[in-house]
Amino acid sequence: MTARTINGRDAGRGDVLTVHYNGGYITAVERKHDPNASDLPVLAPGFVDAQVNGYLGMDVNGPDADSTVIEGITEELARIGVTAWVPTVITASEEAINHALRCVEKARNADARVRDAIPSVHVEGPFISDRDGARGVHDASEVRPIDPEEVRRWAAISRIGVVTVSPHWTDAPKGIQEICSMGIRVSIGHTHATAAEVLSAIDAGATLSTHLGNGIAAMIPRHPNAIWTQLADDRVNCGLIADGHHLPPETLEVMLRAKGPRGAFLVSDTTAIAGKQPGRYQTPVGGSVDLDEHGRLSYVGTELLAGAAASLPDGLRNVVRSTSAGLGQALKLVTENPARTLPGARQGLGTLQPGAPADMVLVSDSGAVLEVIRSSPTLENVGR
C-alpha cells in the first residue's frame, strides 16, 4: 500500500500536524508552529460512538436484522466520520439478544473493515429497572435480575465489551463482580437504584454510566440521588447524549465540568430513524414515533422522547455551540475518551500517534466534518 500524508491543524494548540500513514496505520506524526495555521481545517482521529442501536433505517435490534445490517451501518457511519462504533443490543429475550450478537459476529468475521470498526458489543439490559420512566422503551416483560451466567453465554457468541445494569437488584454487587471478572465493563443505567445502591455497584467494579441523566425517573429525590453519586465519583466515566434534546445545555455544561477532561464521553444512542427526513415512522421498539425538523424523536401525540436521531457528529457540534468546551476538548469527547472505555479497542484508537489506526477526519472550527480518511483502503477519502 502506498504511503500517504495529510496535514491539518491541532484543535488544542493550533500547531500544524503532518500525519504519515501506511497499511492502515499511522507511521509518524510531525508538529510545527505556523502563524498561518488558522487557514487549515482541524485534523482529528476518527470518531468513536460507544452506543449505536441503528442508523438510516438499519436496526441492530430489528427482528429482520442480519450481518448486512451491521455491515451497512459500518459503511454509513464511516461516511460521516464515525470510524469505530459499538452495536448496542437492548433488553429482549435471550434468544433475540443471541440473534443480534450472531449478526454482529458474522459481520465481523466476514469483513476486516467491520472487525476493525467494531471492537465489541454493548448489551443495554435486560438487567435494568422494570419501572416506568427509568425503564425507557425497554420491554418490561423481558426485564430480569442480573445473571452472570447469561452474560457468559452471550460472550460465547460475540465479544461483549459493556453490559448496562441497574444496581437495585438483590445481590447486584456480587453479579457485577462476576461480570467484571470476565473482562467486561459494567455500566449503570436505566435505574431506580438509590444513591447507596449505586455506590455499592461502583465499589463492586461498575465504571461507566449509560447516557447519564436519562433512563431515570422524571421525579427523584433532590439529594442524594443516583445522578449526583455517579457525577461525584471519579471511578465512573459517563456517557452523555448531546443531541440538544436529552440533556438541556446547562445540564450538559455542569456534567462536563463535574467529570473533567477525561471523565465523560459523548454517545449518539441513535435508533434506525437517525439520518432520515422528518416524519412519522413505525419502529420495532416503541411503535409509532415522530421525527421533527429539529431532530427530536418523540412518541406520537406526546412530548416523550423515543430515542435519539442525531448522529455523534451532531452531538459534537452541539457541544461546541452550546457549552464552554472548546473544539479541542469537544473532540476528545468523541475520540480518545470513548475509545478508552471499550474492551477490544485497537491500540491507539481515538488518537493521532504512531501505531494508531489511520482513521482521521478533517473538521471545521464549528465541528462540522469536512473529509474522512479511513484506514481501510476501500473507504479512504470517502468525504461526506
Rank of each mutant, 00 (worst) to 15 (best):
Thr2Glu: 13
Ala3Ile: 08
Thr5Ser: 11
Ile6Ala: 02
Asn7Asp: 04
Gly8Ile: 00
Arg9Pro: 04
Asp15Tyr: 00
Val16Ile: 06
Val19Met: 00
His20Leu: 00
Tyr21Ser: 00
Tyr21Met: 01
Gly24Tyr: 01
Gly24Ala: 06
Glu30Arg: 01
His33Ala: 15
Asn36Leu: 09
Ala37Glu: 05
Leu40Gln: 03
Pro41Thr: 02
Leu43Asp: 00
Leu43Met: 06
Ala44Gln: 01
Gln51Ala: 09
Gln51Val: 05
Leu56Val: 10
Asn61Val: 01
Pro63Ala: 06
Ile73Glu: 03
Arg79Tyr: 06
Gly81Tyr: 02
Ser93Thr: 14
Glu94Pro: 11
Glu94Gln: 15
Ala110Tyr: 04
Val114Gln: 11
Pro119Asp: 14
Val123Lys: 02
Gly125Lys: 03
Pro126Gln: 04
Arg131Phe: 00
Asp132Lys: 10
Gly133Ser: 04
Gly133Asn: 08
Arg135Ser: 09
Arg135Gly: 09
Arg144His: 09
Ile146Asp: 01
Glu149Thr: 10
Arg152Ala: 15
Arg153Tyr: 07
Trp154Asn: 11
Ala156His: 10
Ala156Leu: 14
Ile157Asn: 10
His168Ala: 14
Asp171Ile: 09
Ala172Asp: 08
Cys180Thr: 13
Cys180Met: 13
Ile188Thr: 05
Ala193Glu: 10
Ala195Pro: 10
Ser200Gly: 13
Asp203Lys: 15
Ala206Met: 05
His211Asn: 11
Asn214Asp: 08
Gly215Cys: 05
Ala218Cys: 12
Met219Lys: 12
Pro221Tyr: 00
Pro221Trp: 04
His223Gly: 11
Thr229Arg: 15
Leu231Phe: 06
Asn237Val: 14
Leu240Cys: 08
Ile241Glu: 04
Gly244Gln: 00
His245Glu: 08
Leu247Val: 03
Pro248Cys: 01
Pro249Tyr: 01
Glu250Gln: 15
Leu252Pro: 02
Ala258Asp: 02
Lys259Val: 06
Arg280Leu: 04
Ser288Glu: 11
Asp290Ala: 14
Asp290Thr: 12
Asp290His: 12
Leu291Phe: 07
Glu293Met: 09
His294Arg: 14
Tyr299Ala: 13
Val300Cys: 10
Gly301Thr: 03
Thr302Leu: 07
Leu304Ser: 12
Leu304Glu: 06
Ser311Thr: 12
Leu316Asp: 01
Val319Pro: 05
Ala325Trp: 05
Gly328Gln: 06
Gly328Leu: 09
Leu342Phe: 09
Pro343Tyr: 07
Gln347Ser: 12
Gly350Met: 03
Gln353Lys: 14
Gly355Ile: 09
Ala356Asp: 03
Asp359Trp: 05
Met360Arg: 08
Met360Trp: 01
Val361Met: 06
Ser364Ile: 03
Ser366Arg: 13
Gly367Ala: 08
Val369Ser: 00
Val372Ser: 07
Ile373Asn: 00
Ile373Pro: 00
Ser376Glu: 10
Asn381Tyr: 03
